[in-house]
């Protein structure tokens, strides 16, 4: 690793990795119940624990894994499953395009290997980190590997204990994921303009969810929010202050 003369030198290496792990830590309580639920549902659909582990490791995208289970049938409609996976994961195109310029000194190999585990939570925490500081590869790995291990352990455990566990909505745990994302949304709040973006996204997502089947609501909401931001853009110099500068002062 090359030595950095600037202030970020202290943030390199194991400290950044540990920071990633500890940043992710609270999310374990949101991810583990969802993983247990996924494993239990997968067992009901006839997937073996090893198949659950393989899907979690290779796909590593919770939303599309749940969607795949929903479509799972005998004979297995693999074309439909693969295409639905692509549709629900289209949001990752915007996510990786948004995160790519905010990375620290990543090699090309690190970018292409690292983004294999660009799950929603990994991306969200990396974006949150990028508000104040470039996201280093070590930080990203700390977050990503912790989620990876949590997800595999929880889903396999869920598929093994399966039916023993009841309905997670009994404990409100189905809301944990929503609560997590609401907290993350509030972290991006920068005033009225963010409010307009959120209103546009929320409205478009709800309407699309009501009237269009499938996972299009996420794309519709994202596009509506992006359009709202573009319309609100004001190219006078005073608005050029970057959020990072604003937060560091």
């Amino acid at each position: 690793m090359k030595t950095n003369q600037n202030k970020s030198a202290v943030n390199a290496g194991p400290n950044e990795f540990l920071l990633g792990v500890t940043t992710f830590f609270p999310l374990i309580f949101a991810v583990a119940p969802i993983g247990l639920l996924f494993g239990a549902l997968a067992a009901q659909k006839g997937l073996s624990p090893l198949e659950v582990l393989l899907m979690g490791s290779f796909v590593f995208a919770g939303g599309s894994q749940f969607l795949a289970l929903d479509l799972w049938a005998d004979p297995l409609p693999w074309v439909t499953v693969a295409f639905s996976t692509f549709l629900i994961n289209l949001r990752h195109v915007l996510m990786s395009a948004s995160l790519a310029p905010k990375l620290g000194h990543w090699t090309t190999l690190q970018r292409y290997l690292g983004f294999f585990i660009l799950a929603d939570e990994v991306w969200a925490l990396s974006e949150q980190r990028a508000i104040k500081h470039h996201t280093t590869f070590s930080f990203y790995l700390g977050v990503g590997l912790t989620l990876f291990v949590t997800w595999q352990v929880a889903t396999v455990a869920g598929s093994l204990i399966g039916a023993v566990m009841g309905d997670p909505s009994r404990f409100g745990l189905d809301f944990a994921f929503t609560a997590l994302f609401i907290c993350l949304v509030m972290g991006f709040w920068q005033g009225r303009k963010t409010g307009v973006v959120l209103a546009a996204s929320g409205l478009a997502a709800v309407l699309t969810y009501k009237f269009v089947p499938g996972a299009w609501y996420i794309i519709a909401g994202a596009v509506a929010g992006v359009i709202a931001a573009a319309i609100q853009y004001d190219d006078s110099p005073k608005t050029q202050l970057k959020p990072a500068e604003a937060l560091q002062s």
Partner: peptide, 10 residues
């Protein structure tokens, strides 16, 4: 605006 917009949509 992509991060808050996607999180909100989900």
């Amino acid at each position: 605006a992509v991060p808050p917009a996607i999180l909100m949509s989900v």
